[in-house]
Amino acid sequence: MFGKYLRLVAAAGALLALAGGAASAVEFKPYGRGSFAELRKQHAGRPLVVHFWSVTCPPCLAELPDWAKIASEKKSLDIVFVNADPDNDRPRAQSRIDKAGLSNLVQYGFADDFVERLYFEADKSWRGELPFTALIGADGALVTVTGTIDDPQVADWLARAGK
């Protein structure tokens, strides 16, 4: 099943690339073991937001457009989205990303069933509650927040980081 979806998504991406089409087919990079550390390494020296969301989390969906707004306003901020759904939910995750205007941003999707481990790598005490946001300063300082974008911790951090 995994292979089939991967193939469909990849095929759609390839065809669009051939046709010179815009990036409306979102490419969900696989988010697996070690991905969190890898992201921190890739974005070292720049403020980074890693935002985890799910199509089965209504508050997550409601605030996706707010994240699009932040992304367009704060150019010095790197924002990475991680869809925490299993692979068979990815098509609907894609339509949500398109609808929220986030297709041009970096998207990952959970690619490992051992979700405890993925949670643990981002925050030892995270059990999978969503939305969940990891805020990493340019100095590498990590803060994790369960809650929406208007959570004071998230809002304050965003106000301070990037312009």
Binding site: G3, G32, G34
Partner: peptide, 14 residues
Amino acid sequence: GQDHTRHMAHAAAP
């Protein structure tokens, strides 16, 4: 897909 997942993220197919 298999190679990619094996090398990149150790992701298992669900």
